[in-house]
């Protein structure tokens, strides 16, 4: 286990290097620049700005400088947000997205898993068909539509919930539901098919032949086997949700990392793009390691090497 984790950390560092380099050069190949906004900037001002951030230097020199700073954990200054560093931006924006995303994941897991299992145990009956219908709809409906519908009815029509910001606990309800809808449906479907598969296994028959009650055989014998595909999905899902959804953050006016990331790309804020990309990559790698460890904990047949 210790050896495995060391290996994964080394691998993560290599990945970080590759991601950083690739992003650096690709972003520089993209036309445009941070100071070519709608407002006309005089050539003199532009030159002064570029000199300030070292953009006038040759690309190779920019690259080595950046990588050197990165090694020291410094992601550099934001080009567009005066006086703020990228480290600072991630540190303030990530918790906002993570909190929303975390709640959505908990809902997705604790609603999706029981729903899917319940459907599996009532296969072919009305309740199963209803769950399939809703989970298919949940997967098919894009988040901008579900958020808009939620907002239209719950805020605009009935005035039950605030439509934007995160100033009160009630503000969280709509964005969290909108975020959780797709993964909940997906997990329910995943769990249903996985559960059906496990229910047909010989060891479930053995459990029945031993005289184990149905409830106990579900919780003890079926769930632990059936949950594996869901755990696999949980890794990338957590990364995706906790780093923020651009669409939902835009619609509900939430100051999260997702909108920051997309904003940085459109405004060519190079250090911010680099910083968020590397952060995202590291986050995904960490989650994958956690998923791998979880896997080995749940299924003894899996050995981490």
């Amino acid at each position: 286990m210790g050896k495995y984790i060391t290996k994964r950390i080394l691998l993560a560092l290599v990945t970080a290097f590759v991601v950083a380099s690739a992003t650096f050069f690709i972003m520089n190949m993209v036309p445009g620049g941070p100071f070519l906004g709608e407002k006309a900037v005089t050539p003199a001002a532009q030159e002064a700005l570029e000199a300030k951030f070292g953009l006038d230097k040759p690309l190779s020199e920019q690259y080595t400088t950046y990588m050197n700073d990165l090694l020291h954990g410094d992601l550099g200054p934001s080009l567009k947000k005066r006086g703020r560093t990228v480290n600072d931006i991630i540190a303030t924006k990530f918790p906002v997205s993570a909190k929303l995303g975390g709640m959505a994941i908990l809902i997705a897991f604790f609603v999706g898993v029981p729903l899917g299992s319940y459907a599996a145990f009532h296969r072919g009956k009305l309740i199963d068909n209803i769950i399939i219908l809703f989970s298919t709809a949940g997967i098919a409906i894009p988040s901008f539509l579900s958020s808009t519908l939620l907002m239209y009815f719950l805020s605009a029509q009935w005035g039950l919930l605030p439509s934007k910001g995160l100033n009160s606990p009630a503000c969280y309800i709509m964005p969290v539901i909108a975020l959780a809808l797709h993964p909940t449906s997906y997990i329910a479907r995943l769990m249903r098919s996985s559960m059906l598969d496990v229910m047909g296994q010989d060891y479930m028959r053995t459990a029945r032949a031993k005289g184990v009650s149905q409830v106990k055989s579900i919780f003890k014998h079926a769930l632990r086997n059936a949950i594996l595909p869901v755990v696999t999905y949980l890794g990338p899902l957590t990364a995706q949700l906790m780093t923020g959804s651009f669409i939902i953050e835009k619609i509900f006016v939430i100051p999260g990392l997702g909108s920051e990331f997309v904003g940085a790309i459109t405004s060519r804020d190079y250090p911010l793009i680099m910083g968020t990309t590397i952060f995202l990559a590291m986050f995904i790698i960490t989650l994958n390691v956690i998923v791998d460890i979880l896997y080995a904990v749940i299924d003894p047949r899996i050995k981490l090497k």
């Binding site: 031993k210 005289g211 184990v212 014998h221 299924d299 047949r301």
Partner: peptide
């Protein structure tokens, strides 16, 4: 009924199946 049958299964009558590779639960 199922509940009474459970008391007999594994106690008064038990069974061994064809394929021992799949008849035991892999995670316990």
């Amino acid at each position: 009924g199922e509940k009474e049958l459970r008391k007999i299964r594994g106690k008064e009558v038990s069974i061994i199946f064809q394929d021992p590779m799949t008849s035991l639960n892999p995670v316990w």
